[in-house]
């Protein structure tokens, strides 16, 4: 479904990604794990068109995303839950969700999609008139995921969903991810929290200093020492 080939990207003169290649097949949940500063967020931003790769190709079912503006990418079926949630804090929960369904194609389905999200996260229905910025971290993460789901995506990009959350909430968030997965949605997650993310994904890539160092099924990665090495820098 999603196919990255030798992608290089960065900010200005700083290069954050070096020849990154990865695949996500339809129906899969794929993780990208790696320490802080490995280039995980850059990878997500490149896929959703917020930055342009300097070389390499990013394709969604054959469509070249590297030449597609970000609002078109959303219409193609990719939704991005950005790092640290990035809600619109002074807008209500429902208005935040409304923004998720802003794309012209998604607008007629707003009510329908809103019900889907509320079904998934009843807490959001209870709080739909509350300002997003006044909710707890876990609720905000729910809202951020809900906002992404409003565009009825086929591929969901989750950037560090556990960042800044208390350990109890981290588990809750990954339970959310599992629930979303149950609906058959394809998911690409980047995370620092290796143990948790490997519980919910089929396969994972290890990203370190901007390039892919290892790949394999969750079980394989847990069994080998590559991860420990990557994190401890041995």
């Amino acid at each position: 479904m999603l196919e990255l080939r030798a992608v290089c990207a960065g900010y200005g003169t700083f290069q954050a990604l070096f020849d990154v290649s990865l695949d996500v097949k339809a129906g899969e949940a794929v993780g990208v794990i790696g320490p802080n500063g490995a280039g995980k967020t850059t990878l997500m931003r490149a896929i959703s068109g917020l930055i342009r790769p300097t070389s390499g190709s990013i394709r969604l079912e054959g469509t070249d995303l590297a030449a597609t503006p970000s609002h078109r990418i959303v219409e193609l079926g990719i939704a991005h839950v950005p790092e640290s949630r990035r809600l619109f804090p002074r807008m209500t929960v429902e208005d935040n969700l409304r923004m998720g369904g802003f794309a012209p194609a998604a607008r007629p389905k707003f009510r329908q999609q809103l019900d889907v999200v509320y079904e998934l996260f009843p807490r959001l229905r209870e709080r739909h008139r509350q300002l997003a910025g006044s909710m707890s971290g876990g609720e905000q993460q729910m809202c951020a995921i809900g906002r992404a789901l409003m565009s009825a995506p086929r591929l969901l990009l989750l950037d560090e969903p556990s960042a800044g959350l208390a350990p109890v909430l981290v588990e809750q968030v990954f339970d959310l991810v599992k629930r979303i997965r149950a609906g058959g949605l394809t998911v690409l997650i980047v995370e620092q929290n290796v143990q948790q993310v490997l519980r919910v994904v089929n396969r994972a890539y290890l990203l370190k200093a901007g390039s892919i160092r290892a790949t394999g099924s969750a079980a394989e990665l847990l069994a080998t020492d590559t991860i420990r090495e990557a994190y401890l820098g041995v």
């Binding site: 503006p69 939704a79 619109f88 807008m91 923004m99």
Partner: peptide
């Protein structure tokens, strides 16, 4: 209008707005 929602979202967080599919 929807334009108002879009512009409010943009004024709060331009990047997040772009990520949700708003043509900023």
């Amino acid at each position: 209008s929807m334009l108002r929602y879009a512009l409010e979202a943009i004024s709060e967080d331009e990047d997040a707005a772009a990520a949700t599919g708003i043509h900023v």
